[in-house]
């Protein structure tokens, strides 16, 4: 028996799938992003079809919490299989000076990629509209600790932007 209102899942998918994909892509690169996005939305579907499912107050926080669990499961699975997990790393510095670096988009993208994963993750949550308390719940932090982590991550992003010639305050 279906408990999901007709079209509700599709609506959520349209609204959040590309954001969730971008989150996974920023964690692992493109290879695992598709699988993890599918896993996330399969869990969303299953949860929504569970008897007694009550819609969350904020869908984005709920979906990103599921995405973080999927990411952790993915990391655990890879480690169990003895595989090296290739979290996204900053580009080879030998690329310095290449023409594409002149483009602001590339520079900004690199500034984000150059951050540690936990900084990147927290900024993506913030960008997707999650509140400090929601980020704290996902990461097991207090609301004020989450706020401090966001501020610190923003500062490091800011420094990375400046290093790449992008004015963060423009």
């Amino acid at each position: 028996m279906m408990y999901v209102q007709s079209g509700q899942f599709e609506k959520l998918y349209e609204q959040y799938a590309s954001r969730v994909y971008a989150y996974f892509s920023s964690c692992f690169g493109g290879d695992s992003a598709e699988d993890c996005t599918q896993q996330t939305f399969l869990k969303v579907w299953k949860a929504m079809n569970r008897p007694g499912f009550f819609p969350p107050y904020r869908w984005n926080a709920w979906i990103f919490r599921i995405a973080v669990n999927v990411k952790n499961d993915h990391l655990r699975e890879k480690l169990k299989q003895g595989e090296t997990v290739s979290l996204l790393e900053s580009d080879d510095p030998s690329d310095d000076g290449s023409e594409k670096r002149l483009l602001e988009q590339e520079a900004v993208s690199e500034a984000l990629v150059a951050l540690k994963e936990e900084d990147r993750e927290i900024l993506i949550f913030k960008y997707n509209g999650l509140k400090s308390a929601e980020i704290g719940r996902i990461l097991g932090l207090s609301s004020s600790a989450a706020r401090s982590r966001i501020a610190a991550a923003k500062e490091r992003f800011r420094e990375n932007l400046k290093k790449r010639g992008v004015d963060p305050d423009e």
Partner: peptide, 23 residues
Amino acid sequence: LMSLALMERTPSAHQMERMKQNV
């Protein structure tokens, strides 16, 4: 800036549809 940074990590319409069908 975040929107710019994540722009290239956005899936194509074709990818979006394929993932949805798989789900």
